[in-house]
Amino acid sequence: MIRVVLVDDDAIVRQGLRAILESAPDVTVVAEASDGAAGVADARGLLPDVVIMDIRMPRMDGLAATRAITALPSRPKVIILTTFGLDEYVAEALRAGAVGFLLKDTGPTELLEALRVVMAGDALLSPAVTRQLIAAFTHQVPSLSRQERARLASLTPRELQVLTLLGRGYSNADIATELFLGEATVKGHVSRILDKLGAGNRVQAAIRAHDAGLTRLARE
């Protein structure tokens, strides 16, 4: 059973999300919170698997709440609930440890599938959205530090290939098709890449691939 906490200051949004989530036999909503501070308290006390988090809320916004939740020993997975107009905030939340995001008009089927994808250990970003989020960082990291270069140098040639495709927004299935590998093999490569780069999730790794120029070189 996937245990979920909903954090949104709009009661109607929370009601709609709860109805969708609890229509599935493997999902239960254990709490609703109307602001980030209450969401953090629920995450600490109830130990949910996933927290679905709005960005703009009173008392504590979604960014601060995400940082607090991802720092908990139980480390619930945080999915940001947002609109395209808030990409810059989503990017900061991903830096803080969120595993992805949903749009507020996400359909019921996609919402439920998103939870299962996150629970399987993948990040919840479409290729198009990944590119948009990565682009938001291009002016922030003009060059790689010595430590970052050393981490990239530790990757094998195959891991560099996987990282490049990951940086272009490819899913594990897409990478497997592109490189003629099994999905399990790709998942193993991604796990080792995250470990070597010190990245919390595949989105952070994708951002580093972009910072290193791998995605640009792949297209030239």
Rank of each mutant, 00 (worst) to 15 (best):
A96M: 08
L72I: 08
A123P: 00
T82E: 03
F84W: 02
A96C: 08
S74I: 02
S74P: 02
R95H: 10
G100R: 08
L111Y: 05
I52F: 04
F84C: 00
T70F: 00
M60W: 01
G85W: 00
T109N: 08
R56N: 13
G107E: 13
T83D: 08
L115S: 06
E110F: 02
K77M: 12
D122C: 00
R56G: 03
G100T: 11
Y89T: 01
T70E: 06
G121K: 07
F84M: 03
M57Q: 07
P73Y: 07
T82N: 02
I69W: 06
P58Q: 08
L112A: 02
R59E: 14
L81S: 15
V90L: 01
R67M: 14
D122I: 00
R116D: 02
A120R: 13
V118S: 08
P73M: 05
L81P: 04
F101V: 04
A68V: 07
G85T: 13
V78F: 09
D54L: 12
T83Y: 00
T106A: 15
M53Y: 04
G62S: 08
D87I: 15
R59V: 15
V78D: 11
F84I: 03
I69A: 06
A114G: 15
E92S: 01
L103S: 09
A71I: 02
V118W: 09
L72W: 08
A64D: 15
L102Q: 05
A68H: 04
G121M: 05
P76W: 11
V90I: 06
A98E: 04
P108V: 00
R75P: 01
I79Y: 08
E110N: 11
G62Y: 10
T109L: 12
R56W: 07
R59T: 12
L102N: 13
T83A: 15
A71T: 05
G97E: 04
M53N: 04
L112H: 03
Y89M: 09
L103G: 13
E88V: 09
V90A: 06
A65I: 06
R59D: 09
T82A: 11
R75N: 11
I79G: 10
L102V: 06
T83P: 00
L86G: 00
I80R: 08
T83R: 04
V117L: 15
L81W: 06
E88K: 11
D122T: 00
D54N: 13
R75E: 13
R116Q: 03
L111E: 07
V78N: 11
L112Y: 02
P108C: 00
M60Q: 14
F101W: 12
V117Q: 14
E92M: 01
